[in-house]
Write a protein that binds this DNA or RNA. Structure first.
Length: 557
RNA sequence: GCCCCCGUAGCUCAGCUGGAUAGAGCGUCGGACUUCUAAUCCGCAGGUCGCAGGUUCGAAUCCUGCCGGGGGCACCA
């Protein structure tokens, strides 16, 4: 019996109580009972606080309601006991066979265990990273790559169609500075004061020169300044962006759509969007500029969209972009942005509403910064000085799995300290190995079991799974679908990681106590076959959960 | 001045949609491999959940104020 089935059973008991006149409640207002594993083992396998939740509405003491439910619940098949505890908790024990049945359920369902359909039919556009192609992905962007991809996987697991999207800003002054930095380095000069430094600038400058030579074009350095800059800009951006894409791919993150900011301007999408807003009155003219009424959505002040000099402000591209995403069929647009962008939320919502879309169709996740720490001391990263730690640096130091896991296991609300020395030297400080090891162990157990003639087909006797560690392991396994559903609903990938660590602990403890293959001359019994079911169920959940984080599940370590 | 995030064990962080005695990893100390992987397990130690009020049967969790840290408040992108 899964916790979901148990919740349904409790709900049925509530309905029966209402039908029998024992509870004075609207039957359509009954809550979906919360079923959780109690912290204390003595409190049973599962507990619900539903009696306390409905106590006020029913006008009865919580313990009385719990008693009514307990009487009915205890009669149901698969339930060993139900008793009232504390202020009105209902502690439930499952019959051994009912609890153990979960192992077979998981094995049968396989990769679908933990998947749901609550978001079926919904198309979600998830935009993340979107770093300017003026340099390699740094630590902060790496965090969003790990988090964004995992959130995308979570949404997919609940049935959504997900588009991973990267907004590629090739339009503004940052790019101009990038181009002039390339030109300066190609000429052997220092990069300009407000430009970019670092070895990669030299490398790309060199690559631009050789590309031009191969194409039979004149040396860009000999061209007049504007043409020279353009040559370095167009080729440099392409080269830089190819490098970014390659890094992301090696990191296990691939995007479905790359949108160039320039293309929104070139295609007329920007002017179309602005025309629409002018017509609807969402833009107004003042001091020679056109303003968006973003204050109506909590912004401090209205924002300029068309500057008085006739050029478009940056936000104009954003407005066209959010319209573009909706027109391409997105029901929900999720954006991951760094904490330095939190001021954008209100103007983006305002733009969305002004365009005629539901502002709730845009959801901005603000993630806090990543700090580089070395031996406990904060290290300042500077693009100009070229002291930035990049995605590749991190991967070189700890590997993709450890990097992704370390970045995904914390809430994005917390600033994150990354200590390369710590991660690289004491790799067991990263719990990913604890989880992966559990999976590898389970795989090994399965290999050994096959050698000993233990096979799932030979028996499934769930009532033999009676060791305390087996009860706990089954309990944790049962929570997985709810954890995934909530992680998806709250867009909180770290819940999956934390869950896997809990599951790994339960698995290792079980492994320590219960053998799948018989000891020495011990005869093979149904218990061994049944434990293989449990082992394989755990292995499946490790694989499913690690998959949601984009982290590998190795069979050997 | 206004807005957002954070403040929980020595360190890094969970727990925050209100529930039973606040957790994990790392670090310290002490145990456990003649049989499925010791990257593991078991035990000890470690806490005014930043501070002060409030809400209620119940607050780390919700509300208000304050303190401390980070980020943001452009006709820049």
């Amino acid at each position: 019996m899964t916790p979901g089935e148990l919740a349904a059973a409790i709900h049925a008991c509530l309905e029966e109580c209402v039908a029998a006149g024992e509870l004075d409640l609207e039957s359509n207002a009954l809550p979906e009972p919360n079923v959780e594993r109690p912290r204390e083992r003595e409190h049973g396998d599962w507990a619900t606080n539903v009696a306390m939740q409905v106590a006020k509405a029913a006008g009865l003491p919580p313990r009385d309601i719990a008693a009514l439910l307990a009487a009915r619940l205890a009669e149901m098949p698969g339930i060993a006991s139900a008793e009232v505890a504390g202020p009105g908790f209902l502690n439930i024990r499952l019959a051994a066979g009912a609890a153990g049945g979960l192992a077979r359920t998981i094995v049968k369902v396989g990769t679908d265990y933990g998947r749901g359909t609550t978001m079926a039919g919904t198309t979600v556009n998830v935009e993340f990273v979107s770093a300017n192609p003026t340099g390699p992905i740094h630590l902060g962007g790496t965090r969003w790559a790990a988090v964004g991809d995992s959130i995308a996987r979570l949404l997919e697991s609940q049935g959504a169609t997900v588009i991973r999207e990267y907004y590629f800003n090739d339009h503004g002054v940052q790019i101009d500075r990038f181009a002039s930095s390339l030109l300066a380095r190609a000429k052997g000069e220092e990069a300009p004061e407000d430009g970019y430094g670092g070895q990669y600038i030299d490398d790309i400058a060199t690559a631009v020169l050789s590309q031009a030579a191969e194409a039979g074009e004149p040396d860009p350095r000999t061209l007049p300044e504007p043409e020279a800059l353009e040559a370095f800009r167009s080729r440099g951006v392409e080269l830089m962006f190819a490098e970014i894409r390659a890094s992301l791919h090696a990191f296990g993150v691939d995007f479905d759509v790359f949108t160039h900011e320039e293309s929104l301007h070139d295609s007329g999408a920007v002017s179309r969007a602005l025309d629409q807003l002018k017509e609807s009155g969402a833009l107004y003219e003042h001091d020679g500029a056109w303003w968006l009424r973003s204050t109506e959505y909590g912004d401090d002040k209205d924002r300029v969209v068309l500057k008085s000099n006739g050029t478009e402000a940056y936000i104009a591209g954003d407005i066209a972009y959010i319209r573009d995403k909706h027109e391409r069929g997105a029901d929900l647009c999720v954006l991951l942005l760094g904490a330095d962008h939190h001021g954008y939320i209100s103007r983006l919502k305002a733009a969305t509403a002004a365009l005629g879309y539901n502002p709730d169709s845009v959801e901005v996740i603000i993630g806090q910064m990543v700090n580089l720490v070395r031996d406990g001391e904060p290290v300042r990263m500077s693009k100009r000085a070229g002291t930035v730690v990049t995605m590749e640096d991190l991967v070189d130091a700890v590997g993709v799995d450890a990097a992704r896991y370390a970045l995904a296991r914390s809430s994005v609300d917390s600033t994150l300290d990354v200590d390369l020395n710590l991660l690289a030297s004491a790799t067991n400080a990263n719990p990913v190995f604890y989880v992966q090891y559990a999976h590898a162990r389970a795989a090994n157990v399965a290999r050994n079991a096959a050698e000993y003639g233990i096979a799932r087909e030979k028996a499934f006797a769930p009532e033999t799974l009676t060791d305390e560690t087996e009860t706990i392991l089954l309990g944790v396994l049962g929570e997985y679908p709810r954890v995934v559903a909530q992680a998806a609903a709250y867009r909180e990938q770290h819940r999956v990681a934390r869950y896997l660590e809990e599951l790994a602990a339960a698995f290792h403890q079980w492994y320590d106590r219960c053998r799948v293959t018989p000891h020495g001359d011990e005869p093979t019994t149904d218990t061994h076959h049944t434990r293989l079911w449990l082992n394989d169920a755990a292995r499946q959940v490790f694989a499913n959960g690690l998959g949601l984080l984009g982290v590998g599940a190795p069979d050997r370590m």
